[in-house]
């Protein structure tokens, strides 16, 4: 990026990709797919003490059509699988996924007949957040890391992001 300060019309040059991604990364609209304990910690992250709006992600939307960050917070049971897959498919590109907590990432300590052993079995995941449940600080850290990733992505979603939903 270059800024011409001596020019009276004050212009700057940058790459289109960088300018667009700069806009994208500070206006992530999360869809909290909250099912369990992690959803309560997500509420804490949104509330005024931790205040997720400092990172430009406070516009929480419960419609997949309006959001670009799927935040899977909580245990996903086999009964939830078709729903989660549908919601992911309904989101418009570009879209990102954060898997919040041990249950969403690996099934956690629920290794049993009803719990999906990690959402990456059914949808692609960008960031995994450790913790059971992760603290709000942990989630914010994942958000900041995701912003870095968004900044460095291409203008159009890369081919790997279009990978088929696994099952």
């Amino acid at each position: 990026m270059a800024v011409a300060l001596d020019n009276p019309s004050n212009f700057m040059t940058t790459r289109l990709r960088q300018a667009v991604n700069w806009g994208r990364k500070y206006s992530l609209w999360p869809l909290p797919f909250g099912t369990a304990c992690c959803a309560i910690e997500f509420m804490s992250t949104v509330s005024s003490y931790n205040d997720i709006s400092r990172f430009g992600a406070e516009a929480v939307r419960f419609s997949p059509r309006q959001s670009d960050l799927l935040l899977v917070a909580g245990t996903i049971s086999y009964k939830q699988v078709p729903i989660l897959k549908t919601i992911y498919a309904q989101m418009c590109e570009p879209k990102w996924v954060i898997s919040m907590g041990a249950c969403a990432s690996t099934g956690g300590f629920y290794n049993n007949y009803s719990t999906l052993q990690g959402i990456d079995k059914i949808i692609p995941v960008d960031y995994y957040v450790a913790g059971c449940p992760p603290t709000p600080e942990n989630l914010l850290s994942a958000l900041v890391s995701l912003q870095d990733r968004v900044q460095n992505e291409g203008l159009v979603p890369s081919a790997e992001r279009h990978q088929q939903v696994i099952r």
């Binding site: 099912t35 369990a36 719990t115």
Partner: peptide, 27 residues
Amino acid sequence: YLHRCFEKEAEDHTWSQVMPYTDRLNY
């Protein structure tokens, strides 16, 4: 939708190991 098989897990663990599972009942 959030059936996590607390009761089946309990039968698979010792009495003390059930304690962390109870955290996640009414979290």
